[in-house]
Design a protein around this nucleic acid. Sequence first.
DNA 1: TTCTGATGTTGACATCGTTCACATTGGCCT
DNA 2: AGGCCAATGTGAACGATGTCAACATCAGAA
Lengths: 177, 177
Amino acid sequence: MSTSEKPYHHGDLRAALLDAADALLDQGGDGAVSLREAARMAGVSPTAAYRHFADKEALLAALALRGFEAFGAAMQAAVAAGDVSPYVARGRAYLRFALARPGRFRLMFGPLLARAGDHPALLAASKGAFGALQANTGDRDAAIRSWGMVHGLAHLMLDRAIPGAEEPEALIDRLIC
Amino acid sequence: MSTSEKPYHHGDLRAALLDAADALLDQGGDGAVSLREAARMAGVSPTAAYRHFADKEALLAALALRGFEAFGAAMQAAVAAGDVSPYVARGRAYLRFALARPGRFRLMFGPLLARAGDHPALLAASKGAFGALQANTGDRDAAIRSWGMVHGLAHLMLDRAIPGAEEPEALIDRLIC
DNA sequence: TTCTGATGTTGACATCGTTCACATTGGCCT
DNA sequence: AGGCCAATGTGAACGATGTCAACATCAGAA
């Protein structure tokens, strides 16, 4: 047993696959995530993934779920820091999250979300994240508008569509205040 | 010549491929666009596409370019209608465009745009569309915020993330005013 | 008319998602 | 303790995709 022979069973392949896919998502964007490549990284045969995910889409959904958890934590931490109003803190954290992990962000708020009915956990997580955004506001439409603005700015900055976005931090602080 | 035998040369394969890809984009979303399937629809061999597009990405870029042209026309028409202020007209047209052609919209404002440096025509078209949005405004940051809001709302509605978006038209009129 | 460049075709290769039949193993029941 | 079963991993294979290289066909300029 002292040798480092690979055991037949991986131990926690599910997590390993998610980690690998996460790395792929970060470096190569959305389309760069491949089931086979993730399996390769985990040191496992391509088809082993199917013991843990019904589908490639299921893998992506699990990845998005992870994303929503991290997203919620980031928002909460930003509000807790308390150096600006919770409203501003959330908005800035939203943008920073998107810029820090573009692939993850695009996956979370992408076409997958529209099909989230097939992935109950994803649906719940996304609703949770969205709910937090709308809390503490009397005017519901105003909340939606604000959310839209922050969300749109995130996408536009990711797509390098906003001129003068060379210094994202400065732009964020200037736009969200 | 009276027979309907297929000539060796297609005539305008480039346009035919774009049309086919456009149809695929509309019905099946982004990932449903396939070079081979587009070629199949155009009644041509798979590799014929490479005489007109360097790459699948080039095909998609040309598709996005088409999108920006239609987009610009839609915005202009909406403003010309003149039943509301140009500002509101543009915003509503923006959202209607996104909801009417989700695939096209997502392609236009997607990861492709960030790589638009490789596709000069796309870059120019997108800059033109964006420029129109920022015209007639003294406050540059305010224009960016408005743009962000509309863009974000479009994405959120497409992703079915906004609760109560069953009646999009009503929502649009209520939010953009 | 002939030749040349543009346009299409065939065949092939690597990769991908996915399925099926089989191998291995850890843990529960007796 | 021993044996069985469900969970987990493997291998080969299929169809589809993007892409390349070599070849075929045509349209128009010289």
